[in-house]
Every structure is written in structure tokens, then in C-alpha cells.
């Protein structure tokens, strides 16, 4: 049908932005497609974590006393600090999208760096929590066994068993399969931690692109979608924090 026109077809086409992939008509269409793809991925992430939340629900439903005993080993203060750190990083992530939309390159770089720093802070705190648990023997499954119970059992746990010595309480925990709680704890927080590490990696990639000035008001889907991923990581922690640290 182009043979009926005298013009060469390439002349009739408007100039295509360099960021526009060949299979899209407009940058807006490209942006909406990328975003829908990201949301579908996030739905998969929620279902992925659902299996662990289900395991948690089943074991807590059957053994509430084991969860109650085990939660004394978790440091509520560190958990709360990490919640605040992640919430603040969600603000900087949301702000980075705004900076990209408004073409504020310095602001974009600053908010990405702040998000990465918050993510690293979260992982450092997590490292201290993990290493302490491994050190005292509050670990997964059959490996569970408190080392030097007199020194390492939390006082609040001993208060819950008046008249029992620390060694007796430690033996009781072992007998009640308290290691199952820590299997669930390490799987849930570990998988979440892996997501935080991946988030750091993706934000470093965004940082290099932001420094090169790749983003503008019509082309920032990468910043937006990474922020969406980061918010889902935050939402999962919003549920993990009360379920693991605030059993009381």
C-alpha cells in the first residue's frame, strides 16, 4: 500500500527517541508495559514468600508455646531499628522516582546513595543478630542447642520458668523442638536478606546509570520499577517484624 504514495516511508515517520525500543509506539506505552511486567513479578514475589508465611502459620497454630519461648532470643530493639531503617529507605526510594521525573540528577544520585546506605545498615544489623544466634546455638532444626545456658539464656525466658535452672530450661527448649522456630526464622529473614542484597546490587546499577545521565522525564521506568521492588521488600519486612519479634 505504500507504493501509492510518492514519499519514501522513512520521511513520513517522526524522529524516534533513542530510548524507545523498536517494538513500542511511544515512551508512555513502553513505560506502562515495563511497569505492568514489574507488578506481575512482584505478585510472584508475594506468592513466593507465601509458602514461608504458611509454614509459619501452621507451626505457630500447633505450637504457640514454642514460638513464645523462642521469641525471647530475638532482640526487639534491633528489629525495630531495622524496621525504621527500611521505612526511611522506602522514603528515599520514592523520592528517587520523583527526582528522576523532575530530571534532578544530583537529587537522584543522592537518594539512590541514601537508599543503598540504608540497605547496608540493615544488613550490618542483621549480621550482628545472626552471628549472636549462631554463637549461642540458637539455630535451625536439630542443630539447636544452647551453649552455656546459664550465661546465654535471656533473663525474660528464665523468668517465664520460675523454679527451673538455666540448664533445665535449655533442655526443655531442645525437647520442644524450638529449633523449628529458628528454621522458620532463618528461612524467612534469610530470604528477605537475599532480597535486600539483590536490591543493593540493582541500586548500584541504577547509580551508575544515573551518574551517566541516562534518565529523563519520559524515560525513568528503571528507577520506578526498582523502587517498586524495594517497597515490596519493605512490605515483607513490615509483616516479618511483628510475626517474629513481637510474639508476646
Amino acid at each position: 500500500m505504500s507504493s501509492t504514495t510518492s514519499h519514501d516511508s522513512t520521511h513520513a515517520l517522526p524522529a524516534r527517541p533513542k530510548e524507545l525500543a523498536m517494538h513500542f509506539d511511544t515512551l508512555h506505552q513502553q513505560y506502562q508495559s515495563a511497569k505492568l511486567g514489574m507488578w506481575l513479578f512482584l505478585a510472584q514475589e508475594i506468592l513466593f514468600f507465601a509458602g514461608l508465611f504458611c509454614a509459619y502459620a501452621v507451626y505457630r497454630g500447633n505450637h504457640p508455646e514454642m514460638f513464645h519461648d523462642a521469641h525471647f532470643f530475638l532482640d526487639t530493639k534491633l528489629g525495630a531499628i531495622n524496621t525504621v531503617v527500611l521505612l526511611c529507605s522506602s522514603l528515599t526510594a520514592a523520592w528517587s522516582v520523583r527526582c528522576a521525573q523532575l530530571e534532578q540528577r544530583k537529587g537522584l544520585i543522592a537518594t539512590i546513595v541514601l537508599t543503598i546506605l540504608a540497605a547496608c545498615t540493615f544488613m550490618v544489623i542483621k549480621y550482628f543478630e545472626y552471628s549472636h544466634k549462631v554463637h549461642i546455638g540458637a539455630v535451625w532444626g536439630e542443630s539447636f542447642g544452647i551453649v552455656d545456658a546459664a550465661h546465654n539464656l535471656p533473663q525474660s525466658l528464665l523468668d517465664a520458668y520460675p523454679g527451673k535452672s538455666a540448664e533445665e530450661v535449655a533442655a526443655l527448649l531442645k525437647q520442644n523442638n524450638t529449633g523449628t522456630f529458628f528454621s522458620i526464622y532463618f528461612c524467612m529473614t534469610g530470604l528477605h536478606g537475599i532480597h535486600v542484597l539483590i536490591g543493593i546490587g540493582v541500586y548500584l546499577w541504577l547509580l551508575s546509570r544515573a551518574v551517566k545521565g541516562h534518565f529523563n522525564r519520559k524515560y525513568y521506568a528503571a528507577v520506578d520499577n526498582v523502587a517498586l521492588y524495594w517497597h515490596i521488600v519493605d512490605i515483607i519486612w513490615i509483616f516479618l517484624f511483628p510475626l517474629l519479634y513481637l510474639i508476646g
Partner: peptide
């Protein structure tokens, strides 16, 4: 505050 032509 959106710049002219901003998406989203």
C-alpha cells in the same frame, strides 16, 4: 511541579 510531558 511536573515538567511538561512528564510520564506518570
Amino acid at each position: 511541579e511536573a515538567l511538561e510531558g512528564t510520564i506518570g
